[in-house]
Design a protein around this nucleic acid. Sequence first.
DNA 1: ATATAATGGTTGCACGTGCAAGTAATATAT
DNA 2: ATATATTACTTGCACGTGCAACCATTATAT
Lengths: 159, 159
Amino acid sequence: MDDPRELGDPGRSSFTLDQYPFYLLNRVVSRYNAIIGAELRKLGIDIPTWRVLMILGERAPRGIAEIAQAGVINISTMTRIIQRMTRDGLTECKPLADDARVTEVRLSAHGEEKLAVARAVTAPVYKRVIKGFSRREFEQLIASLNRLHDNLGQPPGEG
Amino acid sequence: MDDPRELGDPGRSSFTLDQYPFYLLNRVVSRYNAIIGAELRKLGIDIPTWRVLMILGERAPRGIAEIAQAGVINISTMTRIIQRMTRDGLTECKPLADDARVTEVRLSAHGEEKLAVARAVTAPVYKRVIKGFSRREFEQLIASLNRLHDNLGQPPGEG
DNA sequence: ATATAATGGTTGCACGTGCAAGTAATATAT
DNA sequence: ATATATTACTTGCACGTGCAACCATTATAT
């Protein structure tokens, strides 16, 4: 009864949703996205846009596929997210010099500004939500999420 | 530097995505949903349907709003999920006796079967993903997710 | 009794998404 | 050199979603 692989197992008769990690994960993510999404909407952006802003603010991905990979978003969807962002002046695109297939995407000045504002707006929400976490608990959470991520492997149709 | 509230804070200059819990959460959820979604598709159902099956299999919610609440899904969306499920013979609806406003939703026999099959199909994926977790780590994860959930409070436009 | 509010659910609309099939550019094989 | 495959991205299509406005039913106020 105490094998951890049986805890929260949807195949077991003792299964309940509150012990099912992916129900809890979905619930937390949905709520967080709902709240953050409402904040971002005031800035005229949505969550996918915000995620791309964060990614481009941190690394310099080589092409759209890599952004999609980093953002865990379908490539064709990412194409259109970048199209919207470029239309709205947040990003600039041009074919890469040594390989005209890949599209180089950079943040525009306007995009950098939006990112800064979005960070300022989301930070207080984040602080509220992380309240009560010790450093140990926080690090344990990160570690567990990374382990789950590794165990999941490469999903179909994401990169 | 070690105040946990500053760890992964999107407002800090030292911010990186791999230390941002909600990036990691989104990533894990997206991957899991992609994998599980592909499995469920073989059964002719999608993730929202699966979630409703699980909810109805566990409790007996009073009306559609309560299902939406439990499933962390918008009410109008839930209306249509139930419509689809009823069309496909997975659920049965009728107005409640003592209050004709609320819609009573029950699993049909076919719905029960689908739920059983879905459980059988998702269990091995779950076991693979939870691999390597000690009981302690598992319980710590559940606790952290519950804490995040509590800290988030009631989001806008979900129930 | 009658008007007003509140509750539970539904629908029109616009839009974002994923899949499958496409195009263009580069790499590989013959 | 030329055909074939692969890579990187794009687009047509069908569909699911959220928001806002709506309808129906019950509760409350006068």
